[in-house]
């Protein structure tokens, strides 16, 4: 077996700082989901697919931060890039698809639920502040800036050398990714008017050029940018330089492809909605074109 594959199949690492928040948010969601399902089994807020999406999102965080990927990330740039992609491109959108705000809210005890809803739904400074900092343009800028800034050679090496900086890097990646995906998935709480689908397509596609440029620059650099990887043993049959080429390609291709996929899905949803709208319009115009006698016959049939 290849040493990298063997390492990937190795045991997971215990990290309380990851496990406890995951258990807390997972429990809140589970309780809220069951409470909502008890009220109605057919409602949209707590559906089975949303439950699956949410737990897949939490599972992705666990995979990124507690599986051997985490340790391998300190040895291989490629695995570190994979870890970051899982956090920002997989976990964050999956969690939003789970519709966490209303469901987890019902998992809270009554007083806490009222406190949160008063803070977010009422005319409070919290809502005003959140509304100001979650403008889609600001979300895009904050995520893109954070994402690119951490790829600076000094910051990246610092994160690999000092554990708390490494944790901060992952936390800011994940939180800003949540900000980025918020207007795209249009998750609750909805503090702003929903972005039109074409706007969301532009929003995600606008991330492709900066990401591709950064990934391309890393993959094609004539020297090793992240010097930390020249100070670790090359146990997986890849030189630091080869590793950097693959790592840069992962950053460049995975994120760009993800954004293009999302844009295609949005296009599909947009055309589906447009078709439905046209269908409704056609039905309405057909009903209007019916002669008075036909309408009378229709009314008689309905009366029967």
């Amino acid at each position: 077996m290849h040493p990298l594959l063997r390492a990937l199949l190795g045991p997971w690492e215990l990290r309380w700082e990851v496990l406890l928040p995951l258990a807390l948010f997972g429990s809140l969601y589970a309780i809220g989901w069951m409470r909502l399902r008890r009220q109605s089994k057919t409602q949209k807020v707590a559906s089975r697919w949303r439950l699956a999406m949410y737990y897949l999102g939490l599972g992705s965080i666990a995979l990124a931060l507690m599986s051997p990927i985490d340790w391998l990330g300190t040895q291989l740039l490629t695995m570190h890039m994979v870890q970051h992609k899982i956090l920002v491109m997989v976990a964050a959108p999956l969690i939003w698809l789970g519709n966490p705000y209303p469901v987890a809210l019902w998992g809270l005890p009554f007083f806490a639920r009222r406190l949160v809803t008063t803070g977010i739904a009422g005319a409070t400074w919290l809502r005003a502040g959140l509304k100001a900092i979650t403008q889609p343009a600001i979300c895009w800028l904050v995520f893109t800036f954070t994402y690119l800034a951490w790829h600076d050679a000094v910051l990246y090496d610092l994160a690999l050398r000092i554990e708390w900086v490494h944790n901060l890097e992952h936390l800011t990646f994940f939180l800003t990714a949540m900000l980025f995906w918020w207007p795209v998935v249009n998750g609750a709480p909805r503090l702003h008017k929903s972005m039109p689908y074409w706007g969301r397509i532009l929003f995600v596609l606008a991330f492709v050029p900066p990401n591709a440029i950064a990934g391309f620059a890393i993959a094609n650099s004539p020297e090793v940018i992240y010097t930390h990887y020249t100070t670790v043993p090359r146990l997986f049959g890849m030189s630091a330089f080869e590793d950097q080429m693959i790592g840069g390609a992962v950053m460049w291709v995975w994120s760009s492809e993800m954004m293009i996929d999302v844009a295609i899905i949005m296009l599909g949803v947009m055309s589906l909605k447009e078709r439905k709208r046209k269908q409704k319009q056609a039905e309405a115009s057909r009903a209007a074109q019916k002669t008075p006698s036909e309408q009378r016959i229709g009314q008689v049939e309905v009366a029967r």
Binding site: E13, L14, L19, T74, R161, E163
Partner: peptide, 29 residues
Amino acid sequence: RVQRITLQLVTLCLAIATAASPVSAHGGG
């Protein structure tokens, strides 16, 4: 039912935590 599921979730998390190998440091230095 809710409390039971919560208890089961917490037990599951503890089981995972016990099964996972403890590592004191994962930063490079």
